[in-house]
Amino acid sequence: MTSQWPQNQYNKKKYFAEQYVDNSDSAIIAIDIDEIVVIYNQTAEDIMGIPADEVLGKQFCELQERKLGTQDSILLNTLRIGRPYSHVEANIETPLGVMNVMAFTTLVKDKNDNVIGGILSIRDVTGQKQLEEKVVKAEKFSVIGELAAGIAHEVRNPLTSIKGFLQLLAQRFPKTDQVQQYINIMLDEISRINYIISEFLLLARPTVPIKRTTGIHNTLDEIVLLTEGELYIKNIKLIKEYDHNCPTVKVDVEQIKQVFLNLVTNAIAAMPEKGSLTIRTVYDRFENAIRIYFSDTGIGIDHSIIDSIFDPFFTTKEEGTGLGLTVSYRIIENHGGKIEVQSRPGEGTSFIVTIPAYRQ
C-alpha cells in the first residue's frame, strides 16, 4: 500500500500549513498583492456568514459592502502601508450574535523580501471577555462588601438607640399632637436607612439561598399582583407570554421575588407615560435553563452607561441607592444563573434572567 504522506520537505510544510488553516479556530483570510482573496477558511465562513465560493477570487474591498466588520480595513492597510497589526480588539455582528474578537495581520513576502500579500486572523475571545468581566465584578463586590459591612455595623448601632428613644418619646405625646407626626416621620426615615443597611450587608455577606421547588410562573404572577395597581395608574399594558413547557425551578422564592419585583419596578419607572411591559418565559432544553424576559417600551438606557448599571451605587434615580440591580445580580449569581440587559435608547429595555431548571 502506497503512503499518501508527502515525502518532499516542501510538500510536508505545505500540507501542515493547509491543515492548520483548514482546522483553525480562528478565521483566516488572505489576500494577494492585487487585494484578491486567496484563502478563506471554514471558521471565516462561520463568523462572517458568507460562503467561501462568494469570496475566493474576488476583490477584498467588495466584501466591505457585505459587512465583514471593522477588521477589513486593517488587512488592506497592512498590505498598502506595509505595517502589520497585532491585538486589535473589536465587537462585530455575526450570524451567531455580537462577538468579541481579537484581530492580527501579517505580511507575506517572497524570497526576495517583496510583499506579495497579507493575512488576517480573527480569534473569538467572547468567552474570555465574559470571564474577565465576571472576575472584575467579583473583585468589586468583595471590596464594596468589606466596606459596606464595616459602615453598616457602625451606623446600625446608633440608629437602634435613636429609634428606641424616639419610640419612648412618642408615648409622652397624644396621637393628635404635631410632635407625634414629626416622630413618625423620623421613625420612617430610620426604617429606610435600615433597609439600605440590609442591602449593604447582603453585598458583604450574601444570604445563602434557602431553596425549594416551585413554578416560575407562580412567582411571576405574585409580582404582577403586587404591581398591578401601579401599572393601572400609569396606564401601562401588561403582556404575559409564558412558555408552558417550563419545568420547575429550585430557588429561594423570596430572593427571586426580590429580583423580579426590582426589575418590574424599574420597568415601570422607565415608562413615565403609558407603554407596555412584556414578561416572557422560554425554556432552553439544551442548557436546561429558563429565561425570563422583562421587556419595556420605555426611555431605554444610554449605551455609554449600560456597562455600569450592575455596579454598586450606580443609579440614575434621584432617590435611588444604586444597590437594587447589584443585589439582584448577586442573588441570581448565587442561584447559578445570570442576568443580562439589552437596550435601545428611546425604544425600550429588556432584562433577561436565566435560572437553571430543576433536575429531579
Rank of each mutant, 00 (worst) to 15 (best):
I197R: 00
Q7M: 10
G97R: 06
V251W: 08
L166V: 01
L131T: 08
G336E: 05
S343P: 03
C246K: 12
M186E: 07
V108T: 14
K240V: 08
N91V: 14
L202D: 10
E45S: 03
W5C: 06
K129G: 08
T297K: 08
L220N: 07
N91I: 04
K234M: 07
N112S: 14
K12L: 15
D46P: 03
N184K: 15
G117M: 04
I193N: 05
I331G: 00
K211Y: 13
I305P: 11
A17K: 04
E146F: 00
I47A: 02
I210W: 11
L169C: 02
I190N: 09
A27Q: 05
T326P: 03
F141H: 07
A270H: 15
Y15K: 08
I256V: 15
G324I: 10
A170I: 13
L68F: 12
I268T: 00
E93R: 09
K234Q: 14
T349A: 00
F173H: 03
K111Y: 11
T94K: 01
Q9H: 12
Q258R: 10
K67T: 08
Y182P: 00
F313K: 01
F351K: 07
V37F: 15
V179R: 13
G298F: 04
A148W: 03
V135C: 00
Q4N: 09
G127H: 12
R330W: 03
I36E: 15
A267H: 00
N262K: 10
E189H: 09
E62N: 03
I331V: 09
I151R: 08
E222K: 06
V37S: 09
I39E: 02
T315L: 01
I28S: 04
L325F: 02
A138D: 07
E340L: 11
R123N: 12
D188R: 10
G57A: 06
N334Q: 07
T316P: 02
L56R: 08
Q255Y: 13
Y182N: 13
N218K: 07
K240T: 15
E230G: 07
D243Q: 00
I144R: 01
P6C: 08
D188Y: 05
A17S: 07
G346T: 00
D53S: 04
D302P: 00
D113N: 12
V179S: 14
I28A: 06
K237Q: 15
K240F: 06
V264P: 13
V208A: 12
N157S: 05
D302Q: 10
R83K: 14
Q9K: 13
E347I: 02
Y195Q: 10
Q167F: 06
P272S: 14
S161R: 12
N245Y: 04
T265K: 04
E222C: 04
T213D: 15
S142A: 11
V88G: 01
E154M: 01
E287P: 11
V341T: 02
Q128S: 09
Q342R: 09
G229S: 06
V21I: 06
T214R: 11
Q4D: 05
E133M: 07
N157Y: 15
L76S: 05
